[in-house]
Nucleic acid binder design. Sequence first.
DNA 1: ATAAATTCTTGACGAAGTTAATTAATCCTG
DNA 2: CAGGATTAATTAACTTCGTCAAGAATTTAT
Lengths: 396, 396
Amino acid sequence: MPRSAPARAPITSPAAATVFTTVLTEGPVSRVDVARRTGLSSAAVTKAARPFIEAGYLEELASEGRTGPGAGRPANPLAIRPDREYFVGVKITGDDLIGVVTDLRADVRASAHHALTSHDTGHVVRALADLVGELLAGPTPDGTSNLRERAYCLGVAVSGDVDRASGVVRYSPFLGWRDVPLASLLEGATGLTVTLENDVKALTVAEQWFGEGVGASSFALVTVGTGIGSALVVDGALVRGAHGVAGEIGHVPVADGGPLCHCGGRGCVEAIASTEAILTRARLITGEPGLTMADAVTRARGGDEPLREVFAAAGHAIGLGLAALVNLFGPERVVVSGEGVATYDLFEDQIRRTFAVQAFGSAARCGLVIRPLPFEEWARGAAAVAIQSLFVAESV
Amino acid sequence: MPRSAPARAPITSPAAATVFTTVLTEGPVSRVDVARRTGLSSAAVTKAARPFIEAGYLEELASEGRTGPGAGRPANPLAIRPDREYFVGVKITGDDLIGVVTDLRADVRASAHHALTSHDTGHVVRALADLVGELLAGPTPDGTSNLRERAYCLGVAVSGDVDRASGVVRYSPFLGWRDVPLASLLEGATGLTVTLENDVKALTVAEQWFGEGVGASSFALVTVGTGIGSALVVDGALVRGAHGVAGEIGHVPVADGGPLCHCGGRGCVEAIASTEAILTRARLITGEPGLTMADAVTRARGGDEPLREVFAAAGHAIGLGLAALVNLFGPERVVVSGEGVATYDLFEDQIRRTFAVQAFGSAARCGLVIRPLPFEEWARGAAAVAIQSLFVAESV
DNA sequence: ATAAATTCTTGACGAAGTTAATTAATCCTG
DNA sequence: CAGGATTAATTAACTTCGTCAAGAATTTAT
C-alpha cells in the first residue's frame, strides 16, 4: 500500500487516554465538557482529541441545534466511531468456546460457539484460532472493509487463577491446566494481540466501562451459578489480591457450623447457594434423588413451599455475603448476576431483604442491581478486556 | 527576622514526594537505590533530594566504609533527619484526650493525657488546645530550639464517621456529635494545621507508613475491643467507601442466626467478640451477673474451661471475619490489634486456627500479625496522619 | 599507576499540559 | 439587523517535570 496503514488508537499520554476513555464511556461530550469532567484544560483536550479524529476513532458531531438555555457558540460534541476497530472476545468453559466480535463500545456484532472435545492445550488453541477465523471471516457491517482488517486484539476469559500481565493460566480446575502460557500460544495461532483475564474480572471490566460501573469509582460484580464469585473495583482499579486471590465471595463464611464446603471451610456462601448446593438440598428435602434443577425451579415458581425455602436460604446466604462485601468496601453499586439458568427471580427478594438488614449504616445506600446474565455476556467481558488493553498505562 | 523562615518540607512535585517517602519509610538509602525502587532516573533523585537537604529534612550519611563486594564509588545514603519537624497527635475518646508529640519517623517523644469532663464542643476544643500547649511547651530534645517552633501540624483521631477532606466530624456516637467542623475550630485554637481522621484509619496509616504495612501494597488492620473495626489499604490508598463506610468488619455477619447486634443485624462479629459481648456471655455462663472482665480474663487464663470457651468463640468469630476480609481483598498482611485489656493471648490461637481453615487457597498465605495495642498508639496514629498531610497530593 | 566499576551531578533537551489571547459561532437586544 | 454578550474551540508562548547523555568523583582490582 502506498498510503501508510491507518494509525492505531494514538494513546500517547495520560491526557490522551483520559480524553478517549471519557468520550468512550460517557457518550458524546463537547471538549469543554470533557475538560470539566477530567480536570484537564480545554486546550489539552483539543490537542489530545485531534490525533484520535485523524485516526478515525473519534468524530465531531454536527452541533445539535440548541446548546442550552443561554447564548454562545454551540458545542461540537466529540463522539466515538464504534466501527473504527473491532475486538474479539472468547470465553473458555470446560465444554465449549463462546466467541463474539464487538465494536469499540463493546456492542456485540457477531457471535459463534464451538464445542470442545478435549482439554488438551494444543486442541484448545487450534479450536480457538478456528473460532476467531470464523468470527472474522465476514465483511464489516458498513461493507467498506472486512472484519479481519479492523481487528487487532483478542481477549480471552478463563475461570481460575489467571495472570493477566504475563498471559499465563496459572491454574484452571475446569480445564485441568497449570501454568499454560495461553496468551503467547494464541498470539502465534491468531496473529492478534492477546489479553488473558479471569472470567469474573473480565465481566467486571465490561460492567465498569460499559455498564453499571460507569461513573462509579468503586463497585463490585457478583456472579451466582455453578460457583459464586465476584470482583471488586476500588478507585477505578480492579482489586487483584497480593497472592492473586481476591473477590472470593463464594468462600466468605456466613453460617457458622453450616454445611461443609469443597474448599474445606464451613458455611461458605458457595456451600449454600451454588447450583449444586441448592440441588443437593432440594433432593434431600423432597426425597427425590433424581430431581433436576429445571424441575426444582418450576415447582418453586409454582408455589412449592419447601422448595421455595431452599431458594430463599440460598438468597439469604448471598445477601449475607453481599453485606460482608459492602460493609468492608462500601462500593457505590453492586451488580448481582445469575449465571446459567435464570433463577434469579427466586433469589432476588430474599437477597434484598437480608442485605437491607445486615448492611451497616449508610453502606446500605449502596445500589443493588440484580439481573440475569446471558452466557454470551462472558465473551463480551473478554472483548471488553481487549478494548481496555488499548490503554497500556493505568486503567483510569 | 532578617533570615527567611526555614522552608517547610519542599514537596513540590510527584518525584519529590516519592523520593521523600522512600527515604522516610525505607530508612537510609542511596540515591541510586531510590531510583531503582521508584523507577525514577537517578538524575531526578539528585534534583529532588537537594531541596530536602537544604531545608534540613534529609541528610547525607558519610559513606559507611564498604559499599559492597565490588569496586566503584561508595554510596552516600540519604537519611531522614527525624528532629527537623515534630508532629502532634491527639486521640479523642469519650472520657479523655490522649496526646503525643512525635518526630518525622512517628517515634513518640512526649505524651500527655487530659480527662474530659464534658462533651461540649467548646470544652473539648479548649481542652485539646491546652493539651497541645502542654505538649509543645518544652525544648527540643537536642536543646537547640523549642518544640513549638518545629511543630506545624496536628493530627486528630476520633471514632465514628469523619470526613478527612473537609475536617468535619459527621457523626460520633461516643461524643454525641453531628457535623462538627472540628478541624477549623482547632486550627483557630492552636494555630496548627489540623488533619482529622477516623481513629482506626489513623492507626492504619501509622502502620502503613511506619509499621507492618511498609512495602506492602495492600494490607489491613483490625482492632478488637469495645468495638471491632478495621481499615484497608489497597494499592497504597486507604479504602474510604463511596458513602464513607468501609472496613466495618465488626458488622460482617459470620453466624447465621447468631446473637442480635446493636446494629440490627444478627451474628455480626461484634455481637460475639466485642468486650461487651464477651462479658455478657461470660456472666450468662457462670451465672454471676457481677463478673468483671478482669476476673473473667484471670479465670480463663487460670484454666476455667467454660470461660476459655467464651474467649475461643470470640476468637473464632474474629477468625471468620478475617477470612471474609482476606478472601475478598487478598491483602499481603493483616495486623490484628487488641484494644484496652490485652486479652489477645486468649484469642490468638483460635483466630489463627479458624483463619487457616476458612481462608481460600493462596489467600491463606496472607501474613497474620496479632499483637496488643498500647493505648498511646491511637494518638501516634493521629500524628502519623499529620505527617502524611505533608503530602498534599496522592498518598503514594 | 592504570583500568574498571559504581555513584552522583550537570546541563541540554523534550514531552506534556497550562495560561492567556484569539478566533468562531451562536443568542439577545434595541 | 447591527452590535454586544456569551460560550466553544484553537493557537501560541511558556512552565514544569523528568529523562538522557556526558562527565566528575571515588572507590577496588590488577
